[in-house]
């Protein structure tokens, strides 16, 4: 075991190159256990690469990713992954999709099913357990994906632009639900998003990434009290933070008023 002082998750000079392209360069940051971290950055800046490295699905070109002091060298399974598309298997019902998690892990069937039904109920999907993905709306599919990621009660929840494809209303609701579920469980969350509002609304801390090769351009703590309500978005603290983050993107040249 590593020293007790080691941070829960640690990216240490993490660099990832694909052929000639450097996606992420010398990235270092840490996460505490139970922290909700949001990462915002322009498209194609290597945010997804970072998540995959944390899940152990890809290995760094140089540097390390460590969880509890141990380098991640193979798929790290005490983790739930939510992808941008819900990635439900079309031949499985909502319940069966959630249970994929326990089937792969060979967890006890009855207990898993009870938990899966409970989770689906918590995200407002009771009555839809036996629906196939094609019969569910985008928001419902993403809720099923969230349940699947939480079924085994993982320490880490990794979310890659999970609500990017949802309409604004659905997105608001699912953010509130996610916050509630997070407050009940206090898992460590790494949440990648394009939306500054979403990052500030959900996270304890926001990392702002530069365009490729990604580095950390700025870091913000979000001191807003929880549970945060939708009305918080019009509050002065919220608007100030969002404005500052937008400012960072303007300095980076990611956002500009006029095209030259």
């Amino acid at each position: 075991m590593a020293a007790a002082s080691a941070p829960f998750i640690e990216f240490d000079a993490f660099t990832k190159s694909f052929d000639a392209v450097t996606a992420v360069s010398e990235m270092s940051f840490e996460l505490e256990r139970g922290e909700f971290l949001a990462i915002v950055g322009p498209s194609g800046c290597g945010k997804s690469t970072l998540l995959m490295a944390l899940a152990g699905l890809t290995q760094p070109s140089t540097g390390q990713v460590r969880v509890q002091g141990e380098p991640v060298l193979k798929p790290y399974t005490d983790l739930g992954f939510v992808f941008q598309g819900a990635e439900l298997l079309p031949w499985r019902t909502a319940l069966q999709n959630v249970l994929l998690q326990s089937e792969i892990r060979r967890a006890p069937k009855q207990e898993s099913e009870r938990r899966a039904r409970e989770l689906l109920g918590q995200v407002g999907l009771d009555g839809f357990e036996d629906s196939y993905p094609d019969e569910l709306s985008g928001g419902m599919k993403q809720r099923v994906a969230l349940c699947r990621a939480l079924l085994h009660d993982p320490e880490i929840l990794v979310m890659d632009e999970p609500f990017g494809a949802l309409d604004a209303l659905t997105r608001d609701q699912i953010q509130i639900d996610l916050q509630r579920m997070w407050m009940e469980r206090r898992k460590t969350v790494v949440f990648v998003t394009h939306s500054i509002d979403e990052a500030v609304f959900l996270a304890d801390r926001v990392l702002v990434f530069s365009p490729r090769p990604a580095r950390i351009a700025a870091e913000f703590r979000v001191p807003l009290e929880r549970p945060r309500h939708l009305s918080a978005r019009t509050g002065p603290e919220f608007t100030r933070l969002v404005g500052e983050i937008r400012g960072v993107f303007e300095t980076l040249g990611v956002l500009r008023e006029e095209r030259k």
Binding site: A55, G56, L57, T77, F81, F83, E87, L89, I104
Partner: peptide, 12 residues
């Protein structure tokens, strides 16, 4: 889908 394979891989 590669994402489906990634998903089950992340489950071990």
């Amino acid at each position: 889908r590669p994402e489906s394979l990634m998903l089950v891989r992340s489950m071990g």
